[in-house]
Design a protein around this nucleic acid. Structure first.
Lengths: 218, 218
DNA sequence: TACTTATTGTGAAACAATTCACATACTCTG
DNA sequence: CAGAGTATGTGAATTGTTTCACAATAAGTA
């Protein structure tokens, strides 16, 4: 009864996001030379409940040993496979402003298997310049280059005002996954997954928490 | 009673985050000279249901007029007040690496009332340098400067390896809200709200979505 | 004023996520 | 190799969130 993409999905987004947490925790545990880990300890490290850890994992199979726990290295690989990070993803960065160029230099992406292969901008002064060994390409060549370099994901870090115009091109080039940093609601077809990252919203949430002495439950 | 706020009903994190969306939508509607907006239209713009919009708002009061909708400008101000963004927040940026310096230049923060007042680093080569009109201070002076400049929130953009050490100082300086970009689980006391922002996790989620032909529900 | 239309505000219903609790099954020790 | 101990895997119970559906009520109209 494993989940596969046959029809219905019963896996929640929260479960997937926790898988990322488990993956990071397991990488650390591996370095600490743990061979096995109990749900209790894994939960403690991620501030979750043991039942939640077990339930999350159980959606994808039965990875543990009763009385002992989960094998650290194996579970790490299994989760990598589930998340689809047991490979290298080719990324393009569109927009080389503050955020874009920071992310190009962000070593964590490379470390996690997300390899930025192309950078685009529409500013003539930026086109041709070098960022961490990559030459900024003209956004006009984007459709062709995205295909030629077998890019699977795009990070969009352009001004809000041009974001829709540019994302249309990205979609037209066949990209199915986009991480957008422009603080605007963009339209994409149903079969394209667009995730919005809005840093002001994060600060607004902090603002609410301290203004209202609100105690989030996690 | 986990939540304080004088015995009010429990508000979910999702509701708060949607409040940010409504706020942004209302700002736009105001520019488009709308005077009132129905939950139906507001929902459409944010890809939510009208019932959800009304329910979210109803947690905080009764802001609309039956038969007409919500008054755009007034609702915007009410939400700003609820979120605590009807004011300027003084922020300090700790760490002037890629992410840190990008965020210092990120105009959206300023625009939303989050004003970066101080920047810190521990690298002698960076201390004293100028970033967007701000001089990078020595992290050694952080406890004193945070208090002197009445800083209320800290954005942490330092390497994971030193993050715990630095956040301890931030907490000791009396800061109650921290946005952390280091991909590591930090420990803070109960009365400090720490929010983690992990960009690799966002890409991992994209990876899962396209690897499994997963259809998120929103 | 009375009538029509529109849209809110909100209990109740439906749905979703988390936690509980325990049978099951494995390890470890002597 | 048996008994003690431990921790998984998972239905059931609980808790949380979203959607439904409709009474209430304001605006607009004549």
């Amino acid at each position: 009864m494993a989940n596969k993409d046959t029809g219905k999905k019963k896996i929640s987004e929260s479960t997937i996001r926790r898988l990322s947490l488990y993956y990071r925790a397991l990488s650390l545990l591996e370095k600490e030379n743990y061979e096995t880990i109990a749900s209790k300890e894994l939960a403690k490290r991620e501030k979750l409940t043991p039942a939640q850890v077990r339930k999350d994992l159980s959606f994808f199979g039965s990875f543990g040993t009763r009385g002992l726990g989960y094998p650290v290295t194996e579970l790490k690989h299994r989760i990598a496979k589930i998340l689809g990070i047991d490979r290298i993803w080719n990324i393009a960065m569109v927009g080389v402003g503050n955020i874009g160029s920071a992310l190009v230099s962000y070593k964590e992406f490379q470390r996690q298997g997300f390899s930025i292969k192309l950078i685009f901008d529409n500013d003539q002064r930026k086109i041709g310049s070098n960022h961490k060994g990559l030459i900024v390409s003209d956004i006009k060549d984007m459709p062709r280059l995205l295909r030629e370099h077998n890019i699977q994901m795009v990070v969009l870090a352009v001004p809000a005002i041009v974001a829709q115009y540019i994302i249309d091109d990205v979609v037209a080039a066949g990209i199915k996954a986009i991480l957008n940093f422009a603080p605007i609601n963009l339209q994409v077809p149903d079969d394209v997954y667009l995730r919005n990252e809005n840093m002001s919203m994060e600060l607004e949430y902090l603002s609410f928490v301290i203004s209202n002495h609100y105690k989030p439950k996690n």
